[in-house]
Design a protein around this nucleic acid. Structure first.
Lengths: 225, 225
DNA sequence: ACTAAAATGATAAATATTTTACATTTTAGT
DNA sequence: ACTAAAATGTAAAATATTTATCATTTTAGT
């Protein structure tokens, strides 16, 4: 799954000292969800922190026409719902399970107790959130300033940083197209051109970047700063 | 100044108990900057929290061609630089003074001491950051999904929430155009159409919204969810 | 009141992007 | 190996947006 918010963002749970992570897990209820099942609904007022244990969660918004617009996919260790803990506002997104997932659910009450006691929690949460903000700003800037070709190259490069060693991005072109804010047709043209330049190799539901450095150089040269 | 990040975001300093805010101020150095003076440079490694006391700060990126691309303007009570405190990464933006400004500069060392002692600091910082993330997600979604007319209406409405009582947005059309990711010409057409619909009144470097509820209804009807 | 600068308004030609429709390739499951 | 489903490839017409200019309006400062 091509995943914007995952870029260079270490998972919340991995940022905590193991002992603290254990305490959070101990205070949580582990819930299981089947494929597509709703975990939280936009507008819901019940606060609480959720952390993915196994599987993954879809973050998105259900449009008026019933279409599900994806914002991000969150994997093991990643958290959501933190917005409700600190703002007293209703949930802003619909969250549903991708495949079967196991999610730790931590109530606001129990979260507050741990939060007060362990300062590592606020630090991990801030780091996660600040990295997300940073990625969103980069993304917004790319969409506003860069033509599709450059935008595509830049986002592909960013996404590559997630993968430890691999150089293959998995995901459908229409997903990537939505992330970039263009149609699949336009993305297709951009990918073809990047392929022609020898920067990427297009596959079936995947894109390979044979030479990270080469793409990096191209982006530096063509996308400014 | 039209300001994306200000929408519905209470300033960091206002979220703190007065006693804690005083402690932060006492631990800071108050620096003065003249119009256009650089406060921080992208790439700089020196961490620290900055809080606007008087005036305002430009957050942006200097493009290769020397153009200054604005990301946000921050006013009194608002903070920046928190990214450097929690990520050990270099600064991601150039920040410069708008007019004459007074900025509290707090070193990482002094910040850490206060942060450890007063949990209200992490709470305020998280609330600020999470609100910013939320606004960025909304913005990104609007740019990706909505045609210019709808996008314009939605962002104008969002911006209105900042202003306590007033219903006048001040700022140039080309600034707003950049925020929306379009040219001034395209924005001009959208504004004209919204004006024709009776939803806004276009002025010189300002836009008035005579009837908040009417615009709100229109956005609800035309922008989904 | 006058003037220069700043900001908006307006237009047409050039480009870029989407829409629509259908063809081809690839994969997973039998 | 075969088939249906999923994903990508392609092309042309329709639409949207930008670029480039110039005119007009508004403001701030004398």
């Amino acid at each position: 799954m091509l995943n914007l918010l995952k870029i260079t963002t270490p998972a919340f749970l991995d940022l905590l000292p193991p002992a603290v992570a254990d305490q959070i897990i101990a205070a949580s209820v582990l819930m299981k969800y089947s494929n597509g099942q709703l975990i939280h609904t936009r507008g819901s007022l019940k606060p609480g922190l959720s952390i993915v244990h196994k599987g993954a969660a879809h973050v998105g918004v259900n449009g008026i026409d019933g279409t599900f617009v994806m914002v991000a996919a969150l994997g093991p260790g990643e958290c959501f719902g933190e917005f409700t803990l600190f703002t007293e506002l209703p949930r802003t997104h619909d969250i549903s399970s991708i495949g079967e997932s196991h999610i730790y659910q931590l109530s606001q009450y129990k979260f507050d107790i741990l939060y007060q006691r362990e300062s590592s929690i606020s630090k991990a949460l801030l780091k996660t959130t600040l990295m997300r903000t940073h990625i969103l700003l980069e993304m917004l800037d790319a969409i506003r300033r860069l033509p599709i070709l450059e935008r595509t190259a830049k986002v592909l490069l960013s996404m590559l940083y997630t993968l430890g060693g691999s150089n293959v991005l998995r995901g459908r072109q229409d997903e990537l197209a939505y992330t970039l804010g263009v149609t699949r047709v336009s993305l297709g043209k951009a990918l073809k051109e990047l392929s022609r330049l020898g920067l990427i190799e297009i596959g079936y539901a995947k894109i390979a970047i044979p030479d990270h450095a080469q793409l990096s150089d191209w982006v530096e040269l063509n996308c400014g700063t």
